[in-house]
C-alpha cells in the first residue's frame, strides 16, 4: 500500500522537524503567545465595534466569534501542512528545489512533509477556547450531526485554503514569484472572511462562493450550524463545504503538477 508507506514517511519526517523546533523552547512559547494575542486582538476589535451597534449584518458578537474560530482552526492545520508552499519561489531561485526531485518519492509530498510548524498549537488553543466560550454564551443546540458536520467542514476549509496556497506556490513555476502573491492576495482575502460575507457587495459574495471558494471555509458552514440565513444563497449550501474543498484541492494539485512538469532548474 503506497498510501500507508507515505503516511509512515510523513510522520517520520515531521517528527524530526518537531524535535528540532523544541530545541528552542522559549521561542516556541513566545510564538504561541504571540499568535494567541494577535487573534485575541481581532476578537477584541470585533467586541469594540459591536459595543454600540450590537450586530453586524444580523450577526451578533458571539456568532462572529464562532465564525472567526472556524477559520482559525482550519488555518492552524493549513499552516502545518501547506503554509511553507508560499515560499516555493525562494527554493526555486536558490536552486534548492532540485533536491525534492531527485528522491524516489512524489515531489509534492516531499515538499509538503518538509516542514511542520508546531506554533500552530496557538491556533488550536485559541479556537477551541472560543468554541467552548461561545457554546456557553449562545444556544447552538449541539447535536452529534452538528459536531460531525463541523469536523467535515474544517476538513473542507483546510483543503480550500491549502489548495489556494498550492495554487499560489504553483505560480512560482511560471513567474518565479509566490510569496508576494500570498501577502497581496490571500492574506487580505483571509481577513475579509473573518467577517460574515453577507456584508460585502453581491459580486464579492459571488466571487467567494464560486471562484475562490473562501465562503465555504467558515461563512457557509457557520450559517448552517448557527441556523442563520445566507441571503442570495440557499441555506443548505454550507453542506457542500467538504466536497468543494476536495474538488478545489484536486484542481490545485493538478495545476501544481502541471507547473512542475515544465519546471527547469535555475541551475544556480
Amino acid at each position: 500500500m503506497p498510501i500507508l508507506k507515505y503516511v509512515d514517511l510523513y510522520f517520520k519526517l515531521v517528527s524530526a522537524g518537531i524535535r528540532a523546533q523544541f530545541q528552542y523552547r522559549f521561542a516556541f512559547f513566545m510564538r504561541i503567545i504571540g499568535l494567541i494575542t494577535a487573534y485575541s486582538g481581532t476578537a477584541i476589535t470585533m467586541w469594540v465595534m459591536l459595543y454600540r451597534f450590537q450586530e453586524l449584518g444580523s450577526w451578533s458578537f458571539f456568532e462572529m466569534l464562532f465564525l472567526f474560530a472556524i477559520a482559525i482552526l482550519s488555518w492552524g492545520f493549513c499552516i502545518i501542512l501547506f503554509f511553507h508552499f508560499r515560499s516555493l519561489d525562494t527554493y526555486i531561485i536558490n536552486g534548492t528545489f532540485d533536491r525534492f526531485l531527485v528522491r524516489p518519492i512524489n515531489p509534492f509530498f516531499h515538499f509538503m512533509a518538509m516542514r511542520f510548524d508546531v506554533a500552530s498549537f496557538g491556533q488550536f488553543i485559541f479556537s477551541i477556547l472560543i468554541f467552548i466560550w461561545v457554546s456557553f454564551e449562545i444556544n447552538i443546540g449541539w447535536t452529534f450531526g452538528k459536531v460531525l458536520f463541523l469536523f467535515a467542514s474544517i476538513i473542507g476549509g483546510i483543503l480550500i485554503q491549502g489548495g489556494l496556497l498550492v495554487l499560489i506556490s504553483a505560480l512560482a513555476f511560471w513567474t518565479t514569484k509566490s510569496e508576494q502573491f500570498y501577502w497581496v492576495a490571500m492574506y487580505p482575502a483571509r481577513n475579509l472572511t473573518n467577517y460574515p460575507l453577507v456584508i460585502y457587495p453581491k459580486i464579492v459574495q459571488w466571487f467567494t462562493a464560486f471562484v475562490v471558494p473562501f465562503g465555504f471555509v467558515n461563512y457557509f458552514p457557520a450559517a448552517v450550524i448557527l441556523e442563520k440565513e445566507t441571503p442570495f444563497f440557499p441555506a443548505y449550501i454550507g453542506y457542500f463545504s467538504p466536497l468543494v474543498g476536495l474538488v478545489f484541492f484536486m484542481i490545485a494539485y493538478w495545476i501544481w503538477m502541471l507547473g512542475l512538469s515544465r519546471y527547469k532548474s535555475t541551475g544556480s
Binding site: 521561542a27 513566545m30 510564538r31 486582538g41 476589535t45 465595534m49 459595543y51
Partner: peptide, 25 residues
C-alpha cells in the same frame, strides 16, 4: 524573540489609534 510583545503592540496600535473604529464609538 519579540513575538508576543510585538503582537500586543501592533494590536494596540491598530485599535487605539482609531484606524478602523473612531474613538467616539
Amino acid at each position: 524573540e519579540t513575538g508576543g510583545i510585538e503582537d500586543i503592540f501592533y494590536f494596540a496600535m491598530s485599535l487605539l489609534s482609531g484606524s478602523v473604529i473612531p474613538l467616539w464609538f
